[in-house]
Design a protein around this nucleic acid. Structure first.
Lengths: 209, 209
DNA sequence: GTATGTTTCAAACAGTTGTTTGGAATTGAT
DNA sequence: ATCAATTCCAAACAACTGTTTGAAACATAC
């Protein structure tokens, strides 16, 4: 039991890191099992298939994230409309994100990269899995924005939330590379947390525009 | 000569579409050559390797795009600082983008998708190729923003441009899927041009924040 | 200690990948 | 029409992919 769990989570740890780095198709099971120091066949034994392993990687992240986000939303849902400023709503999204970094190293960056790859799939198998299983939390978030900004139409909110999602996925997912460029060019080293803080006024202004 | 050119461009046409749809690793040369109705070996004959084919796909897009963008920038570079509003700068970026759609069907979406995939590569081979060869145009764009908004620090501008880039790549690249969701949910069908128009105030407000 | 169920492991499986090869077909110039 | 160069093409190459297999190792209960 304990040995098993260690094998399973060692596979998940190696897989989520490699998937984020290289992508799903570019990462072979042999690369994963070598890094995790487990036998090749143990992936199929514990996760049936590679596709299921990918879903398991997402599940572990999204369960942590949506649980915390759901708590944030519950307190917001008891506020009146004029108390729902964009900055407050964005913070409800960002706090659960920041707490991910407490669990594993570089977790925010990895998580955002994985989300980006999930959305990049055109046949949308993975994107649909994610939205079907965890989309209801985002719907609650949309409703809150609608309540706070009733002058915006519902599809304006829909699109602006996706502009925001794009900014976050792109800059936080690629933050390692971008921070290297930033440091080389202006010699200022930002942590992921600093990048998020820098991003907040940009996003808030856009949402309210 | 004319037969050759037709083979080369047929390969490029099929490749750019498939790369955008599925990704580089997920697209085999056999899939490309089948759709292009050419022989498998002709890819290696005309483009040496798959990696070079990928670069050729980017080159064809970026040459068109940077040529038009460079013209836009030249006129902007003759304006005074107080004439450089964010909306005007963004339009200089968007006009060359829109004109891509004149050349090939759905070109904007394909181009954005390809850019997204290029940035997703962590080892950064492709991203470096793109920035080395076409980065100087973006540097000129950054300088213009600096001139128009001198109260922003240079790394604030750097990061905000990347927030913007993220929004554009994410929503325009995934616009097919997102527009489907949008239509299903609120029965409003937007073209890519409409999505860009919707995005402009969001981005402008963020840049000025 | 024996029996039962779970987990690991080396080896092999069939299928796909990018690339190479040598000869056939086509092209353009004299 | 002849020659040379270019382009095409069917076939094969070695390398790698995800998955399966059957036996070994292990743990747990009686």
């Amino acid at each position: 039991m304990t040995k098993t769990e260690s094998t399973k989570s060692r596979i998940l740890d190696a897989a989520e890191q490699l998937f984020a780095e290289r992508g799903f198709a570019e990462t072979s099971l042999r690369t994963i099992t070598t890094r995790a120091r487990v036998n090749l066949a143990s992936v199929n034994y514990h996760f049936c298939s590679k596709k299921s392993l990918i879903q398991a990687v997402f599940d572990r992240f999204l369960q942590d994230f949506t649980k915390e986000l759901s708590l944030e939303l519950m307190t917001l849902e008891q506020l009146s409309a004029d108390q729902l400023e964009a900055e407050k709503l964005l913070n409800a999204l960002i706090r659960p994100l920041l707490s991910l970094n407490g669990r594993r190293n570089n977790a925010i960056s990895i998580f955002m990269r994985l989300l980006g790859r999930a959305y990049a799939e055109t046949q949308g198998h993975l994107r649909r899995y994610v939205t079907d299983k965890y989309g209801h939390v985002l719907v609650r978030f949309t409703h809150l924005f609608q309540k706070g900004y009733p002058n915006l139409t519902i599809d304006q909110i829909f699109w602006r939330l996706h502009y925001m999602l794009g900014s976050m996925i792109f800059t936080l997912g690629g933050s390692d590379a971008l921070r290297q460029i930033s440091q080389a060019d202006f010699n200022r080293d930002l942590g992921v947390e600093d990048v998020i803080k820098e991003m907040l006024p940009f996003l808030a202004a856009g949402m309210k525009a």
